[in-house]
Write a protein that binds this DNA or RNA. Structure first.
Length: 334
DNA sequence: AAGGCGGGGCG
DNA sequence: CGCCCAGCCTT
C-alpha cells in the first residue's frame, strides 16, 4: 500500500512537475533562499523575488555584506518582513560561524534563524539528500485525504501524527524527489477546493475519496478568527449593578440577553474598562454612567469566536428563560 | 498553546 | 469585498 503510493507519487512528479529555477540546483544557499521566500508565498509570486535575490546577492557573502535595509528593500512587497531580517541574520551567522559553508546536518540547519521543522527538512533533503520528510500545507492536505485522517492539523497532536505519517511514507531512497513530489501533487492535483479526483492517479488508494470526505479534509479545529463586532446593548441594571444586557444589532445572538457578571459600576465615572470572558469570547468594554442614570456605552472590542466552544457554551437566551434559569441556579446554590 | 506577521487569489 | 491561505517566532 505505502510502497504503491510512493511509486505513484514519484512517477506522477516526473511527468507533471513544473520547471522551477530552484529545482535545478543542489546549492544549499539557493535552496535556502527559495524556501524562505516560498514560506507563505505562492510560487507565482515568489519567482520574481527569487530571481531578484539571486542576481543581487549571488553568494551568501554578498547577502551577509549587505545592509539589513538593502535586504528589506529587496524584500519589499513580499510581506512577513521578519523573514527578510532572519534571512539576513542567518547569512551573517553562516559567514562568521560556518566560514560561509552552509551547515549540512538537520539539527544545525534547524537551529538557524527563520528555519523551523519544515524548512530544515526541505533543505536537508533537497541539498543534502538527507531522509527528512517535509510537512507543509500541501502535505497536510494530501495525507489527510489519502488516509482519511481527520486529526486537526492545527493541534499539536495532529501535527505529530501527520509528521509520523509523512516519515512513514518518505521514500528514503529518493528523499529529495519524494518531498518535491508530494508537495507538487498537493499544489497541482490535490488542491484545496474541488480537486478533480476523477483524473487523480491516487484515486484508487484514497480513503478520503472512498469515504466521500474530500471536501472536509484536512480538518482544522481552531477556527478562531478575529472579527470586529458591532454590538449595541440595552442595559438593565439595579442600583450599581448591571443585571442583564440585551444584545442588539446584527452580531451573533442578536436580541438575546446575557449576564455581564454583575459588575460594580464606578461611582465617579468617566471611563473604566473590564474584560468580559465567555470562554469562547473576549470582549473589552468601555462604559460610563451618565448623569441621568442611564448607561452610555462605548465599545471597540474584538470578538474571538472558537466554533468548537460555541456549541458547548451556554448561549445568551431570550429574557424569560434566562431569568428563570438564573433563579434556578441561585436556588440550587442556596 | 495561542497570536502576530502581509501579501495575493478566489468566489 | 470579505474570506482564505500557512511556517516561524514570540509570548
Amino acid at each position: 500500500m505505502l510502497q504503491q503510493i510512493k511509486t505513484i507519487l514519484l512517477k506522477w512528479y516526473s511527468q507533471n512537475q513544473r520547471e522551477l529555477p530552484w529545482r535545478t540546483t543542489k546549492d544549499p544557499y539557493f535552496i535556502w533562499l527559495s524556501e524562505i521566500i516560498l514560506q507563505q508565498t505562492r510560487v507565482q509570486q515568489g519567482l520574481s523575488y527569487y530571481q531578484l535575490f539571486t542576481e543581487k546577492f549571488p553568494t551568501i557573502f554578498d547577502l551577509a555584506n549587505a545592509d539589513e535595509q538593502t535586504v528589506l528593500n529587496t524584500w519589499q512587497g513580499l510581506g512577513y518582513y521578519s523573514r527578510a531580517r532572519n534571512l539576513h541574520a542567518t547569512s551573517r551567522i553562516i559567514v562568521h560561524q560556518y566560514k560561509g559553508v552552509f551547515p549540512s546536518s538537520f539539527e544545525e540547519i534547524k537551529s538557524l534563524k527563520g528555519i523551523g521543522n519544515y524548512t530544515a527538512a526541505a533543505i536537508s533533503s533537497f541539498a543534502f539528500d538527507l531522509p527528512y520528510a517535509v510537512v507543509d500545507g500541501n502535505v497536510y492536505r494530501v495525507l489527510s485525504r489519502v488516509f482519511d485522517e481527520d486529526s486537526p492539523i492545527d493541534s499539536s497532536a495532529g501535527q505529530k501524527l501527520f509528521q509520523n505519517l509523512a516519515n512513514n511514507l518518505l521514500n528514503t531512497s529518493f528523499p529529495a524527489n519524494h518531498n518535491q513530489a508530494i508537495m507538487e501533487f498537493g499544489a497541482l492535483q490535490c488542491v484545496p477546493v474541488n480537486p478533480n479526483c476523477d483524473i487523480c492517479v491516487l484515486n484508487q488508494h484514497c480513503l478520503g475519496r472512498q469515504n466521500n470526505r474530500i471536501n472536509v479534509l484536512p480538518v482544522k479545529e481552531k477556527k478562531t478568527k478575529v472579527s470586529k463586532v458591532q454590538i449595541d446593548y440595552s442595559i438593565h441594571f439595579d442600583e450599581n449593578k448591571i443585571l442583564l444586557r440585551k444584545r442588539l444589532g446584527k452580531g451573533i445572538w442578536q436580541h438575546l440577553y446575557e449576564f455581564p457578571h454583575c459588575i460594580d459600576m464606578p461611582k465617579d465615572p468617566p471611563v473604566f474598562s473590564e474584560t468580559h470572558l465567555l470562554s469562547h469570547q473576549k470582549l473589552t468594554l468601555n462604559y460610563y454612567r451618565n448623569v441621568n442614570n442611564t448607561i452610555a456605552f462605548e465599545e471597540n472590542g474584538l470578538e474571538w469566536v472558537n466554533i468548537k466552544d460555541l456549541e458547548s457554551y451556554p448561549k445568551p437566551k431570550p429574557i424569560q428563560s434566562f431569568i428563570d434559569n438564573y433563579l434556578d441556579e441561585l436556588n440550587s446554590e442556596n
